[in-house]
């Protein structure tokens, strides 16, 4: 594909390529990243419903926790971090 519609995003300090029109979740999955969050019991979770209902794909996006990555478009230079629910004490 033309490289013009590709850009970089940062995931846990590493760089991956996203494509214009992709949600963050889609960009991660296209790069083989499926475990996006760990629950309070330290179980890994990833995208399940893909349509904003199940809230399983929540990650920390640009410092904001609990962002549904399946509903949020990837943008150039956005920073995504795997979310550990046991370390998010206050809903923010």
């Amino acid at each position: 594909m033309d490289s013009g519609d590709k850009f970089e995003i940062e995931v846990d300090g590493k760089t991956i390529l996203a494509r214009k029109g992709q949600t963050i979740a889609e960009a991660l999955l296209a790069n083989g990243l499926r475990a996006l969050r760990t629950t309070r019991k330290q179980a890994p979770r990833g995208v399940y419903c893909g349509m904003g209902i199940c809230y399983e794909c929540r990650m920390i996006v640009n410092g904001i926790p609990n962002v549904r990555t399946c509903m949020t478009m990837a943008t150039p230079a956005c920073k995504v971090t795997t979310q550990d629910d046991s370390r998010i004490t206050l809903e923010k």
Partner: peptide, 23 residues
Amino acid sequence: WTRPGVFSVGGLNTLAKKGIVPG
């Protein structure tokens, strides 16, 4: 069923339509 890699049918369908094959 909570393991990463289990998707809803509709969720995976949206990905497949975009040519994303997550497995």
